[in-house]
Design a protein around this nucleic acid. Structure first.
Lengths: 224, 224
DNA sequence: AAGAAAGCTTGAACACGTTCAACCCCACGG
DNA sequence: CCGTGGGGTTGAACGTGTTCAAGCTTTCTT
């Protein structure tokens, strides 16, 4: 049987993954050595590279796994009934993410290193993460689908909200306050502000300033 | 004479610096080797570390030097006569920075790597760059001193503007459009938007939303 | 001028992420 | 039941940033 061999292989991959993540959690990303990971998994150094392209790729694997595991929660948050106000849905959406990441907050900080450079595959803005980013935006689009947003701004709102939630997550990664209390506070207030702005954007009165906002968004997104 | 020795030492430091920066510009930061820098400067590998704590420290030295060289321009931009509208002063302020950085744009991208992590000394938010950051904010404070900004928001405006200009600079570092045309466009439109928002913040009508904005700023700045 | 201190220089050595040619093992075709 | 092909595994080797004990040179002290 082929499955026997495949199963063994997958088991090795998994063992490397588990050992690595445990070490990252315990001693930090930088302080953990690929040699130590391999040794801990009972394989030679090179084996780790047979399964993972690089040290960061292991973190990437965690990111992908965490992302998959939170889909259900994100969907529930985004598609909560109409009784749930947008502010609550948005807040919940970010909370789901933070809860899924929480046990490995320190691990994810490793990705923050190249976080600013879209050229790096290991970046929230990079090519590697594009599918997840787009799936996120689909959820966010559903979240605001019933809000009757203006025609010019509407198409950009998912991307803007995606940037918003990524900002909160990054702040959370950096946040050194006890229990990341500051992030919770930031989320509470900023979610209120964001939804308020979205409501205001529907008023005809705000059209001029909205046009400027749209222009800015299009420049940043490279649509212009 | 002490000066003789000091002069020789400084000359070596300078030679390492020049060789390093030329190599960074030509081949990029990652591709340039400390061994190559030392060899190019005619010293042993270890000598480079006698003068610079790390490879990134050399980029840091450039950052500091560029920063010093642009002070005059920044001051002129910030303290332009009252005839010059705030929007023009702000635009000019950022332009001075970009012009000073321009010849070594690629080099500065190396600092972007740890740019997001305030824990890293080599970060616009890090400890190492605190003096420059604060000097920046002094200029920005002078820039808006005559604007009659509201009492609650006013104290935060320099920090907000600092974040704004840093955002533009980072966008510029990443911007791959020809001649960084997109950044120029972004600067033009965003400077207009920022100054417009500052004017709006003076209207009594906007007080409620301004309070929320101030609350957000205080959470992010860790003042709360 | 002799000796000591301070400043500068050296290059081998270290630890790490990563690569790779060689090797092993085992399901499969004959 | 052989042997073969390819997935899986090995560990030495490479290139890198960085460290450091040792040595050298210049300046200061007496």
């Amino acid at each position: 049987m082929t499955s026997n061999k495949m199963a063994r292989s997958e088991e090795t991959r998994r063992r490397i993954y588990e050992v690595a993540l445990a070490a990252f959690r315990e001693k930090g990303f930088e302080e953990t050595t690929m040699r130590a990971i391999a040794a801990g998994a009972g394989v030679a150094t090179g084996a780790a590279y047979y399964y993972y392209e690089s040290k960061e790729a292991i973190v990437m694997a965690f990111y992908a796994e965490a992302w998959a595991s939170m889909q259900e929660g994100l969907g529930a948050a985004a598609e909560a009934g109409k009784k749930t106000p947008l502010e609550a849905r948005l807040t919940r959406y970010v909370e789901v993410k933070l809860e899924a990441f929480a046990p490995n907050r320190g691990v994810l900080r490793a990705l923050l290193r190249n976080g600013a450079d879209p050229a790096s595959p290991v970046s929230p803005f990079g090519r590697e993460t594009a599918p997840m980013r787009e799936a996120d935006m689909v959820w966010l689009a559903k979240m605001v689908a019933d809000q009757g947003l203006p025609k010019d701004l509407g198409p950009h709102v998912p991307a803007v909200l995606w940037l918003y939630q990524m900002g909160i997550v990054m702040f959370w990664l950096i946040d050194e306050s006890a229990g990341q209390e500051r992030t919770r506070e930031l989320l509470r207030v900023s979610a209120k502000a964001v939804t308020l702005l979205l409501q205001l954007s529907k008023l005809p009165l705000t059209r001029p300033i909205r046009r400027t906002a749209v222009e800015l968004i299009e420049i940043v997104r490279g649509v212009a």
